[in-house]
Design a protein around this nucleic acid. Structure first.
Lengths: 153, 153
DNA sequence: CCTTTGTCATTCGTATACAAACAAAAATTG
DNA sequence: CAATTTTTGTTTGTATACGAATGACAAAGG
């Protein structure tokens, strides 16, 4: 009764947040690939966190970079194969593997920091300075909501 | 000489757009998986576009849903294996495969539209109504920039 | 001390995602 | 019409991404 006709037809894919976020992300990935062909965003994020934190366990590193432990392992393996990170067992906890940058890893990271900053700039280029601040703010607020209740069942 | 000390150390991963967008997307994917366990976002996007457009060629469908043709093929194959879409050759163009929803596909889509709308609502829940509008607007503006030149080499 | 519970790294399976290379068919051009 | 270029679907290879299961080890409990 009183079925609103344009809501019945009204799921437009192109207006859904998820669809738009996926495309915004695609554009960012394209920019990243153009500016830093040597690394993927997750690989570079791993290098950056290791540069910041020193030696970290694999799971910890996954948490810091917002990656699943299974995903993290793959990233570490590929970086290790290229000689950019190394792992050694934690003497105080036999389960843990401490991951750290090698000399080559530190150099590779330093070589790409400037490009990484340019990537962020180019990604936000379509927005005005005030909008950029707001966009980042909105993103942070959305992420902060870990497991909220949702609006309505 | 006047080297700004906090810019020298100043690549903070947690402040980069790409890193934040990835996490926002992760949260959305988690919400999606909870509300619609039967489909992935890309699969549902495909069903939605087919419901809207009728019969479309595979490449065309990929463009409409912002997917690579290789990716699209995988999605179509999995949906076809479940009997939700069917394909037949285009009589007027022997290269093309026309993809369309089956009865089961139409029903599955209809069964999940309400949940899909709830997903968008829940994803945007941390924001105020005005902020939601603005967030979507900012996303659209970023996407619109296809292959801009970037700010500075 | 031993059992329960939790954490850590690993593996498997599934699903995007895209680059690159291909063959067949179409459209365009000379 | 013949030659070139495009488009279309497909396959292969690499890299996330995550759930689920597993075995090894750690911490807590009684």
């Amino acid at each position: 009764m009183a079925q609103p006709a344009d809501q019945a037809l009204g799921y437009r894919l192109d207006e859904q947040v998820g669809f738009l976020m996926r495309q915004a992300n695609q554009r960012h990935l394209a920019i990243f690939g153009r500016r830093i062909p040597d690394f993927t965003p997750t690989q570079f994020a791993t290098l950056a966190k290791l540069a910041e934190l020193g030696s970290v366990s694999q799971n910890d590193l996954g948490r810091q970079t917002a990656m699943d432990s299974a995903t993290m392992k793959g990233v570490i393996d590929r970086l290790a194969r290229r000689g950019l990170v190394s792992s050694r067992p934690d003497p105080s906890d036999m389960r843990r593997l401490l991951i750290g940058l090698t000399e080559a890893g530190r150099a590779a990271y330093a070589d790409h920091v400037a490009a990484a900053e340019a990537i962020s700039t180019e990604t936000l280029a379509p927005l005005s300075p005030e909008e950029r601040v707001q966009f980042l703010d909105l993103l942070r607020r959305m992420i902060a909501a870990r497991h909220s209740e949702g609006t309505n069942p």
